[in-house]
């Protein structure tokens, strides 16, 4: 599988990654090589094989419905890039 420049840009957009236009060909080459490696999966006979998401196939544990957390806004917002009146600020969102 080989990715062209346009596809690299599409993926980078989907992943919200700014890529230097000059670096796109190199990404295209490297990603294509990785996909070539990955394409070996096609050789495996997986007919009737169930996907395995977790090696131990355990089941989800449930927690009791109890409030255990207290307000730590000040602590958490001390590491935030931009806050005001307890809110995280981002460039204006248009709906």
């Amino acid at each position: 599988m080989s990715l062209d420049k346009h596809e690299v840009e599409r993926i980078a957009h989907l992943a919200r990654l700014a890529i230097d236009p000059g670096a796109v060909p190199e990404y295209a080459r490297n990603l294509s090589n990785i996909l070539d490696l990955v394409d070996q999966l096609g050789s495996a006979d997986t007919a009737g094989v169930e996907p395995l998401a977790h090696p131990l196939e355990a089941r989800q544990r449930l927690r009791e419905d109890v409030v255990t957390e207290t307000d730590q806004r000040e602590r958490f917002q001390a590491i935030a890039p931009q806050v005001e009146d307890g809110l995280y600020l981002v460039p204006r969102v248009i709906e």
Partner: peptide, 29 residues
Amino acid sequence: KRRIMIGTYALSAGYYDAYYLKAQKVRRL
């Protein structure tokens, strides 16, 4: 960035079965 892009591609519409699901099956093997 490379790995994020490979993963984004493998999960994106039209490729999920061929990559992600296939890899999970191979994982069981």
